[in-house]
Design a protein around this nucleic acid. Structure first.
Lengths: 196, 196, 196, 196
DNA sequence: GATGAATGAGCATTCATTCAT
DNA sequence: CATGAATGAATGCTCATTCAT
C-alpha cells in the first residue's frame, strides 16, 4: 500500500472527490489543479502524497475496485448453492453500480481504454470474471448448470450484461431500480429467452 | 454529411488509419501530428477538411458506427423468424467486432466516457439496443420468447454481453473465434444456464 | 501603379469591400479567406492580382489616401485667401471622414502603428501636414496669421485636432454633424479659447 | 486589481518591458515567447499571472493609462485658475508623452483600432477628454473662456492636438522639446491663429 | 507536512502562400 | 484568368511537475 493509498484511505472524503472528478471528466480532462481545489489542498500537497497524476488516478481506482472485490467475495461467501451464488453476485454488482457508479464508469472506461493502463484493468476484470467462472464450473460439476456451456464465455457474458444493463438504466432513467433489473437478468440467465 | 465525412468516405485508407490511431491511443493521447503523418498529409490538410480534432474524431467514429448499423439492419432483413433474427444480429455484431475492432473499442470507451461526447454515443447505443428490443418484442408477441421478460433489459443485456465477450476474447486470445462464441451466446440466451 | 491597384481601381466595389474589412477588423485579424469570400472570388484570384497580403493592404490604403490628397488639393485650389484655404481644408478633411471613415481609421491606426508600415504612413501624414503648414506660412507672410507661431507645430495641431474630433463624434454620436464641428474648430483655431 | 496587474505593479521593470515590446511591435506581431524571453521568465510564468495574451496586453495598457490619469489629476489639482489648469494639463500630457511614449503609442493606436478592444480605450479617452471639458466649462462659467464654444468639441480638439504634435515631434526629431511645443500650443489654444 | 509560484515541453490551431488543373 | 485543395511554419495556450520557503 503506497503513501497515496494511505492518504485516500484515511480521508474518504478526498477519495470520493477524486472519484467524482475522474469519473465525470475522465483522466485527461481532469487537471491536478481541479483535484487540488476540489480537495481543498494545494497542488503541492497532492504531489507530496502521490508521485504523479497517474499514481493518484491508479490509487483512486484501485481503492474503488477493491471495494467491488470485497463486496463480490462477501456475496459468494454467504451461499453454498451455485445458483444462489450467481444471484448474490448479480446483486452485489448491481449494488456496487448503485453505490459507486463513478468507480464503475472509470472501471469500464479503462477496460476498453487505450494501451497505457489497460493491462491493469484487464487483470482486475479477469479476476472478477474468474470469480463468476469458478461458480459456473462448480455448478456444472454439481449438475446444476448445463455442462456443454463454455464457462469462460458465460462468465464474461454475465459480467458484461450486468454492467451494461446497469449503466443503461442509470443513463436512461437516472436511477437503478435494482429489483427489476435483478429479476430479469436472473430469468434470462437461468432460463433463457425461449418460451417453454 | 460534412466536408470531413466526405474526405474519409472517399479515402477509406485514411479512415482506417484514423480508426487505428484513435482506438489504440485514445482521443487525448493521439496528436494531430501523428494522424497527419500516418495519413501521409500535412497537418493543415486535416484542418482543411475538419474544423478541429473533435470533428475529425466524431466523423471517424460516426462513419464507423454507421457501418455497424448497416450490418445489423442487413442481418435482420434476411430473416423473418425472430429467433433467427437474434442469431443473425449476434453474428453481425461479432463480425463487426472481428472486422472493425478498433471502432468497437472506441464505441464502448465513449459509451462509458466522460460527459462531453457521451450523449452522441448514448443515442447510437440506444438505437442498436432498440433494434434488438424490437425483435424481442416481436418474438414475444409471436409466442416464441417468454412473455414475462422485460424486453428493454434483455436487449441491453444481449448488447452488452456480445461486446464484452468479443473484447474479452480479443484481449485474452488475440483473436475472435466467432463460431465458438456465437454458439455459446446463443445457448445461453435461448436456454439459459440451468440444466433441464 | 501595380497590377493590384489596377484591379481595385477598375472594380470600386471590391475596393470598398477591402476597406470595410480592413478598417473594421484590422490588418492582422483580417484573413485572406475573408477578403476573398467578401469579394466573391477565390483566394487564388487575389494572389493573382496581389503579390501578398501586404500588397493588397497597401494598395487598398494607398488608393484610399490618394482620395484624401485629391480632396485636400481641390479644396485649397478653390481659394486664394489663407484663412479661407484653412476653412476649406477643414471642410475637406471632415468630408473625407464622413465619406471614407474606414480609410481614415486605417490611416490613423497605421500612423501610430508598429514599425512595419509606419514609414509609409508617416510620409503621407507629413505631406498632409505640410499642406496645412504651407498655407499657414503663406498666411503669416501675408500678415493674416500671428507671425510668432511655429507653423509646423500649428499644422500638426490642426491636423490632429480635426481627425480626433471627427472620430470622437463618430464614436460618441454615431454620425458626424459637420457644420457644428467645423464652426467650433474654426472658432478655436482662429480666435482661441480666451474671451476677448 | 487582477493578479496580473499586481505582477506588473510589483515589478516595474517587467511592466516597462511589456510596454516596450507591445508599443514597438504591436499586439499581433508580439509573441508571448518574445515577451517571456524579454522579461527573463518562462512563458508559463506569464500564463500563471495572466489568463491570456489579451489580459497581459490590457493590464499593461491599463496600468500605463492610469499613470496618465494620475499625472493629469495632480496637474489640475495644483491650480485654481482655469487657464492655469489648462496649461498644467498640457504640460502633464507632454511630460507623459516624454516619459511614457510607448504607452501613448499603444493608447492612440487602440483608440483608432479595430472593434475588439476599442470600447475599453474609448472609455479611457472619454474620461480624459471629460477632464479637459470640465476645466473648459468651469472657465466659461467664470467668464475666462469664450462662452459660445462647444466645450466637448474643444476638449476633444485639445486632446487630439497635444498627442498628435507630440508624436509628430518624436517621429520627426526623435525627441520632444517640451517648452517649444507647450508654448506654441498654448498660444494657439488661447489666442488662435489670427493676428490681432 | 504543506504550499504555490515558476517552469517548459507538448499540442491544437491558424493562415498566408503555392500550384496543379 | 481563375480556382481551391494542400501546405507547414508560426504561435497561443495547457498542465503535469518541481522546489524553495
Amino acid at each position: 500500500m503506497s503513501k497515496g493509498t494511505d492518504f485516500l484511505n484515511k480521508d474518504r472524503e478526498k477519495f470520493k472527490i477524486a472519484v467524482d472528478i475522474f469519473s465525470s471528466k475522465g483522466y485527461h480532462s481532469t487537471t491536478m489543479d481541479e483535484v487540488a481545489q476540489a480537495m481543498g489542498v494545494a497542488k503541492g500537497t497532492i504531489y507530496y502524497h502521490f508521485k504523479n497524476k497517474d499514481e493518484l488516478y491508479l490509487c483512486t481506482t484501485q481503492l474503488g475496485i477493491s471495494i467491488l472485490e470485497i463486496m463480490a467475495r462477501e456475496a459468494i461467501g454467504q451461499h453454498t448453492d451455485s445458483r444462489e451464488k450467481i444471484v448474490a453476485l448479480i446483486e452485489s454488482y448491481l449494488l456496487f453500480m448503485h453505490d459507486y457508479a463513478g468507480i464503475a464508469y472509470i472501471f469500464l472506461r479503462e477496460l476498453f481504454g487505450d494501451h497505457n493502463r489497460r493491462d491493469f484493468f484487464r487483470e482486475a476484470t479477469k479476476s472478477y470474471q474468474k470469480l463468476i467462472q469458478n461458480v459456473l464450473e462448480e455448478g456444472q460439476r454439481a449438475g446444476a448448470f448445463a455442462g456443454d456451456l463454455n464457462a469462460e464465455i458465460c462468465a464474461s457474458s454475465i459480467f458484461g450484461m450486468i454492467f451494461t444493463v446497469a449503466i443503461h438504466y442509470l443513463q436512461v432513467y437516472g436511477e437503478l431500480s435494482m429489483d427489476v433489473v435483478k429479476d430479469n437478468i436472473c430469468k434470462l440467465i437461468f432460463h433463457g429467452l425461449l418460451e417453454v
